[in-house]
Design a protein around this nucleic acid. Structure first.
Lengths: 196, 196, 196, 196
DNA sequence: CATGAATGAGCATTCATTCAT
DNA sequence: CATGAATGAATGCTCATTCAT
């Protein structure tokens, strides 16, 4: 399903992610994308069915990079609290590196229409189920607060981290990753009731 | 055909909020807005400089309703923990009632351009500064965890509540407000280290 | 036929003449006219059938001022050459004073459509017939070149003066009226073959 | 539907010149232009920034054709009087052939704003400087009246010819080019004081 | 006499898409 | 594989006109 064809596609992906992250999907034109990618307009329609299909492919691509960066992170973590720390670290790092993609995702997350809404739901579930797994494990082991709804808590923790990260990058870029991570980790662990 | 005056602006605001909340700013056409508002197209341009100016006015309007609903809520709260509980309640209620407006705000929050970005910043600061005040008070009084950065924590708590609320309304609408509020309040108080 | 009603109409005339002289008929909006005149939009439609009717009335008004300024000028002139000098003087003076109106006339002169084209034809014939009368007299009396077609010559002389005047006012405003008049009078008299 | 390339711009130029010459710039719609040119609306915006830019390009185009037709004409003329006769002939012929373009130019000449005013100034200077050169030569050689301001006289002669030509084409089309040229040449030579 | 909110047909412009090369 | 001139439906916006006050 993943398309490959030299770096033409990569340049289109990169250009589209940046522009859509900055201005949104509808406000980004195919002309702008191809101008930044340095290819001709027809090229988009040679590789994709249209603008929506390009974004769809791009989301699948981002989804894979995300999944890879997450699963690598939890391996070897000592217990749920450590795993959660690791996830905070991974998500912050991912958003910092792939800021444009993250903005794109956040701005489209709660839309109800759109051609690639399906892809976004999948992406979100990937994100959230990893958190849910760790939280469920913590609840079972007594490390986290009993009575927590793992699914709902996972969504909330995901949202905490995402909004904290974007707030940092957009409104307080002078702070370092370490500062943000330290403060955020404390709040996340507190939120799930980890003994501290 | 319609000659009723006075509520023309309100009808335009309501229509625009709903549509933009659902489909986003660029994807919402002026034709759609005026059709839902039941006014003629020219009316928008009689009252506003353009589509962007309508949204700007609408955001200022929403800002005022929000500020009112918040400041009413904290009055009479017994201490920071109670004030925070009250704020969680107020924000959840506000988002539930003004879901369209909230989606609009969240989808535009981290844009860097746009004509009404200024208004959004103000709105966000209003939001966050109320939280920051309560959290700072809690830190001083020893009710919340020492060493917390009140500003950053306020942003994060705001994001927690907003994402939890939208996640609820979009993905798990079968849950009741009370259920969501109970779970969320626990997590928020934990996040700021309130003695539980 | 001439409408009178306090200074409201005068202000509308003045505003319309200036704006249409500067930007042309189609490019001038009713909004701009009423803004400059300091009256409400509806006022135009209370006094006139519409924008075109306003211009029509305004042209009739200008026509009368013009006719007055011309007929006063030829009276008492000693022979055709003196009358022609007097007309050059009168037209230059008129264009200088009523520059906006003159630009309006010149820019619309050779249009073939338009609702007030009839008025412009009348205006032009007024202009030209005065010249034609003087030139015909000069031909008969032998003061001007024999064989001249009085009508065609009158048109040409009118055009000479008008273009020279506007060229002066737009491109060489630093020259004085006297300089321009002296040079132009010599050329006009030469053009009709006046002895010396 | 049309896919012929190459002459697309020429067709747009021709259509725009005709329509704007007849009805003026503002009163001419892009829809009318593309309908007459037989191309799609978007084509205008593919090649030009907008309607104003199309007119600007069109004026530059007309300027070049004009300059060519003029400089060809004066070569080989015997002395200033002959050169002036040749220029009268050239300008009459040009206006007759390119009547629409000439009307466009005359109707916009004394505007003070507009996006292509710059182009018109250039065009006018091209026109006038050729006349000014010939007249200056005539003054020096004693063929024309001493004391004439070559620049001002050139403007005036240009205006004489242009208004005479348009008056002829619009109001007295039954006359022949030869009749008009004969009468006009006499007046022009008289105006510059050529010994006759 | 005069107002100005409201109208809606008409306009310039945009932009995703097509297709001959 | 890739191009870019051309398309035309859709969009934001303008503006002469209407009408209740």
């Amino acid at each position: 399903m993943t398309r490959r064809s030299g770096d033409t596609l990569d340049r289109l992906y990169a250009a589209a992610i940046e522009l859509i992250g900055e201005h949104g999907y509808s406000a980004t034109t195919v002309d702008e994308i191809v101008a930044r990618a340095g290819v001709a307009k027809g090229t988009v329609y040679y590789h994709f069915k249209g603008k929506a299909d390009l974004v769809s492919a791009l989301l699948e691509d981002g989804l894979q990079r995300l999944a890879a960066s997450f699963s690598a992170e939890i391996e070897g973590a000592q217990g749920p609290a450590e795993a959660l720390r690791a996830l905070v670290h991974a998500e912050l790092l991912y958003i910092q590196r792939d800021q444009a993609f993250s903005k794109l995702v956040m701005s489209q997350m709660w839309r109800v229409d759109g051609d690639w809404q399906q892809d976004l739901r999948l992406l979100r579930e990937q994100y959230v189920s990893v958190f849910a797994g760790v939280i469920a494990e913590g609840i079972e082991s007594g490390a986290f607060r009993a009575g927590l709804d793992a699914q709902a808590a996972a969504s909330t923790v995901f949202g905490m981290i995402a909004t904290a990260a974007l707030d940092w990058l957009v409104f307080r870029p002078e702070q370092t990753l370490d500062e943000v991570e330290a403060a955020l980790t404390g709040m996340v662990l507190g939120a799930v009731g980890a003994a501290g």
